[in-house]
Design a binder for these strands. Structure first.
Length: 277
DNA sequence: ACATTGACCTGGGAGC
DNA sequence: TGCTCCCAGGTCAATG
């Protein structure tokens, strides 16, 4: 499932295709995924108009036309496929979007077996007040003050640092894989209370979050079970993971066994030797 | 305000 | 082979 690097990779691959193309028709094969899709409103706002920009905010992909924005979240198992036909090629295809433009007409299919994803829309100038966007924290990439932001926001918090950085109100885009990976890189124990993490540790953590996300984007995103690029290739960042999904295997730094614990029901991987503080 | 838990779904793999 | 159980990359809503 897509974390931030996967969504960024998908956005970069779809952008050249979509920008300047006209969304002729949006077809919804079922009216609800995670939540009901506002089908008539979406069609009215997006159909018949050229896409001006395609961007990512948090793990959402946004299709902007002159006045409206289409909002897409891929949940845990979502993907887009590109096709030259209207017929869905995969099971669990919940929506299909027909584009015309400079090149031949094409269809983008939205596929999400588990239906944890979201399709919505808003007026472009209202997006920041949208329920899904108004409480989001800052983007982690190209953010020079991330360390300070995390430090100040964490004072007094007893929540463990791993859950703290996974909360999108703290900072967006740090999912379960990259939370474990960045804490390992920064040598911070995942169970430590966020409020006890020092300013210097947060500076190191900010650097680690950024480097692990950027490295994954360069590699085309992590792939485990569900994520594929729109073109169908798998990403290959998984080969570079230091601790995630490596329970029982030796730490790449000290050779001690990698441990797996649960925090808020989610698996956390770490090295007890390298992550003492 | 903050912390914790449950809920939403399907599919794949492990174990019997 | 077939059944059951457990797990999965997210995040919102409801509850203390």
């Amino acid at each position: 499932m897509p974390e931030l690097p996967e969504v960024e990779t998908i956005v970069r691959s779809l952008r050249p295709l979509l920008v300047g193309s006209v969304l002729e028709e949006a077809v919804f094969h079922r009216p609800d995924i995670r939540w009901p899709i506002p089908v008539p409103e979406f069609k009215k706002a997006l159909e018949g108009q050229p896409i001006q920009t395609v961007e990512r905010r948090s793990k959402y992909m946004l299709w902007n036309n002159k006045s409206s924005v289409g909002i897409f979240h891929l949940g845990m198992t979502g993907r887009f496929t590109i096709s030259d036909t209207a017929a869905p090629t995969l099971p669990h295809t919940h929506a299909s979007f027909n584009f015309t433009g400079p090149a031949a007409p094409f269809w983008i299919h939205y596929v999400d077996p588990r239906r944890f994803g979201i399709i919505d829309w808003d007026k472009r100038n209202h997006l920041l007040e949208h329920k899904l966007f108004r409480d989001l924290g800052p983007e982690p990439l190209a953010n020079k003050t991330l360390g300070q932001h995390l430090f100040q926001l964490s004072r007094g918090r007893i929540l463990d640092i791993k859950s703290f950085i996974m909360d999108a109100k703290t900072v967006v885009g740090v999912g379960n894989i990259y939370a474990s990976e960045s804490l390992f890189l920064a040598k911070i124990r995942p169970t430590k209370a966020a409020g006890k993490v020092t300013e210097a540790q947060f500076e190191a953590l900010a650097v680690s979050i950024q480097s692990v996300l950027e490295k994954s984007i360069r590699a085309g995103g992590t792939t485990f079970r569900d994520f594929r690029h729109t073109s169908g290739e798998t990403g290959y960042f998984a080969q570079q993971l230091a601790v995630y999904d490596r329970e029982g295997e030796p730490c790449l730094v000290c050779q001690k066994t990698i441990l797996c614990i649960r925090q808020k029901g989610r698996a956390t991987y770490y090295c007890a030797i390298c992550q003492k503080a």
